[in-house]
Nucleic acid binder design. Structure first.
Lengths: 211, 211, 211, 211
DNA sequence: TATGAATGAGTATTCATTCAT
DNA sequence: AATGAATGAATACTCATTCAT
C-alpha cells in the first residue's frame, strides 16, 4: 500500500470518528447543547482539527443526516414487495420489513433520535431531516401502491393518507420503543424488534379490532 | 373598579401577550432560536419588563406547556366512553373524540408544534413535554381498557402497546396535517378535522384491510 | 431636566467615550490589532456594553470616519475664497486656510492618522476613508476653480490635476509633520501649524524656485 | 548542469513565485487580509511548502519590501544631478528623473501600493516601509542640496522641508495616478508617465502660478 | 410596573505555525 | 523539497439575566 493511501486512510478514520462522536452528542444532548469543544475533546484532537475535516458545525450535522438517509432508504428498498400472494403472505412480508427497520433503528439509535426526536436545530438541518422523513414516507407509499396493483389491498383507498398513517405508526412506535415517552409501566421497551414488528403489522392490517 | 384591579388586569393582559408571542416563536423558530429580545420587541416592551412577569426563559416555556397540558386533557376527558354499544357506536364515538382533538390542534397549532415537533430544548422543558404526551397516552389507554371492560374490544390485547400505537397514529397524523412532513402532493393538508377523524378512526379499528 | 434626558445624556457620554478610545487605538495600533476587549477594558465597561452602543467593530470605525469627514469639510468650507484680490492676498488667504487645517490636524491627530496613514482595514472602511479624502480633494478643486474665475490664477491649467498635486502636498506634509516618516534630523516636527502653512503656501504658489 | 543546480534553480523559481503572489495579495487585500493558505493555494503548493521557503509571514513581507527598497534606490540614483546648467536644464533633468520613477512605479504597482497605501501591518513591517520612504526622501534631499551648491536653486532654503514637500508631491501623485483616490472624473489616471512627469516638474519648480 | 442600559460567561471559527512522513 | 494533517491561541459577537432609576 502506497504511503499516501495509508495517510488518507488514517485521515478518513479520524473523519469518521468525529462524525460518530458528533452524531452521538447531537442525539443525546441536542444540537445546540453540543459544543465543538466537546466533540474534539472526546476525540482527543485539537479544535482546529475539526475544522480541517469539516467546514462547520452545521456541515457535519448535514452530512450525518445525509448518510442516515441513504442507509434507511437501503433498508426499506430491500423490503420491497414484488409478487402477489395471500393476505397472510402480505402480513408476513410487512412484518419482515418492519423487523429489519426496527433492527436498524435499534442499531442506529442516535441517528433515529436525531431524525425522530429532533433536537432543535437550525433551518437547514431541520429541512434535511424533513427531507429524509419524506423519503421514507414515499417508499412506504410505493409499497402500498404496489400491493394495490397486485390486488392484495382493497382498491380505492388513498395511498397518500394511508402512507402517512402507516409512517406515523412506525415512527411513533420506534420513538417510544427506543426513547420514550411511554407510560412508565409499559412493556414496550422490553420488546424485541421482531415482537414489535409482529404487533405493529397486526395493527397495520387489522386495526384495533383485529386482535 | 378600583385602580389596582384595573392595573392588575392590564398587567395580566401583558403577561398573556408575552406568553402568546413566546409560544408562537418557540414553535416557529425553536426554543434556542428565540431570543428574549425578539419577544419583547414584538410585544413593544423593554427587556426588563419580561423579567418582571417571568422568572426566566425556561419558566415561560414551562408555563406554556403546562397550560397546554391542562387544555388537552380537558378535550380528551370529554370524549370519555361511558356506556356500551355496537361496534359502529364505538367507531362513531372515537371519530367524534378525534374530531374534537383535531379541531383543538388546528386552533392551537403553535402549542401542538411545540409539543409534537419538539424544537430541541433543555432538559426540564423536554421533560415537561414528555409528561404531557404521556398524559395523553394514559387517557387513551384508559379509553381502550374501558372499551375492553364493556366487551367492545377483543379481550387479551395489550392495552399499553395498543395505546402507544394509537397515540403514535394520532400524533403523527396531526403533525403531518398541520406542519408536514408529508410528500408534497399529499391531500392531507387540505382535509378538514372531521374528514381526518373519519379516516383515522377507520384505520384505528380496521387497519389497512378495512377499506 | 427630565429623568430620561439625564439618562440618555449619560448613555451618549459613554458612547462618545467608546468612540474616542476606539479612534485612538485604531490610529495607534491599527484596526486589526485593536481588540474590542482592549477598548472596553480601557473604558472600564463590560464587553457587552460595547455591543449595546455599536453594532460591530466595523460599525464604530465607519462612524468615526464619518464624523471626521464632516468636521474636515467644515474647516475647509470656512476657508473658501470669495472675492478677488492681489497675488499676495491669495497667498495670504491660502496660508490662512492651511493654518486652520494644520491646527485641526494636530488637534485631531488620531483621526488624521487613521485617514492618512491608513491602518489596514476591511473593504468598507477603506472605502469610507477613500470617500473622505476625495471629498477633501474636491473642496480644494473648487477653491482653485474659483480663483481661476476671479483671474487670480492663470487660465488653462487643469484644475483636477492641480488639486491632486495640491492635496498630495498637504496630506503628505501633514503626515510627515505629525507621524513621520521624515529624515530623522528634519526640523519639520518642531514647526508650528502657522510656520508650516507659510512654507507650504509658498511652495504651492511659487514652487522650488520661489524661495 | 548538475542535478543539484537544476533543483536549486527550480527551488528558487518557486520561491520567487511565492514572493510575487504574496506581494500582489498584500497590496490588493492588505497584509492582515492575506492568508498563507491563499498564497499557497494560488501557487498550487501545500501549506508546509511555504514554511520551507520562508520563516514566517512577516519574513516574506520584510523581504518583499527590502527588495523594493533597493530597486527604487537604483532608479533615483541614476537621476542624480552632477553638473551645472540653466534653469531649463534643471527642469528637464527633474522631469526625466520623475518619468523614470513613474515608469518604475507603474511597472511595480503592487510594490508601490504596499509602500504608499500601506495596508496596515505589524510594527516591524511598518518600520521597514518607513525606512524605505525615508531613504527616498534622503535621496531627493541630496539632489536639492546638490542643486543649491551648483547655484541652480536659491540659497537659504530649508532642504529638509523642501524635500518633504517634494516627496509628498511625488508619492501622492503616484498613489492617485495608480490607485486613486481621486475625484472620479479626473484625467489623472489616463496620463502617461511622461505627461505626469512634465506636470509634476512644472509644479515642483514654479508652483501654481507657473502656468 | 416599566425602562434601557449594563453585565459577562459562553462559543464557533480563523489562521499562522509545526511536524511526521 | 514537499505534503497535508494537526495544533491551539486568539477574538468578535450573542444573549439571558440583573439593576439603578
Amino acid at each position: 500500500m502506497a504511503r499516501e493511501e495509508a495517510n488518507s486512510k488514517k485521515s478518513e478514520e479520524r473523519r469518521n470518528e468525529l462524525l460518530g462522536i458528533a452524531l452521538e452528542r447531537f442525539a443525546k444532548y441536542g444540537y445546540h447543547n453540543t459544543k465543538i469543544s466537546d466533540i474534539v475533546q472526546q476525540a482527543g484532537v485539537a479544535q482546529g482539527t475539526f475544522y480541517w475535516h469539516f467546514k462547520s458545525k452545521e456541515a457535519i450535522a448535514l452530512e450525518i443526516i445525509d448518510n442516515g438517509k441513504r442507509e434507511i432508504a437501503k433498508v426499506i428498498e430491500q423490503g420491497y414487495r414484488s409478487h402477489s400472494g395471500t393476505v397472510q403472505d402480505m402480513v408476513t412480508a410487512s412484518e419482515s420489513l418492519l423487523a429489519s427497520l426496527f433492527r436498524f433503528a435499534s442499531q442506529n439509535r442516535y441517528l433515529m433520535e436525531l431524525l425522530l426526536v429532533g433536537t432543535g436545530t437550525d433551518d437547514n438541518i431541520r429541512y434535511k431531516v424533513h427531507e429524509t422523513r419524506i423519503e421514507m414516507e414515499k417508499a412506504f407509499q410505493r409499497n402500498i401502491e404496489r400491493a394495490m396493483e397486485l390486488n392484495m389491498l382493497p382498491q380505492g383507498i388513498d395511498s397518500y393518507i394511508r402512507a402517512s398513517l402507516l409512517v406515523s405508526l412506525i415512527e411513533g412506535i420506534i420513538a417510544r420503543w427506543l426513547f420514550g415517552p411511554t407510560v412508565p409501566e409499559s412493556p414496550l421497551t422490553s420488546k424485541t424488534a421482531e415482537q414489535l414488528a409482529a404487533e405493529t403489522a397486526r395493527f397495520e392490517f387489522f386495526g384495533l379490532l383485529g386482535i
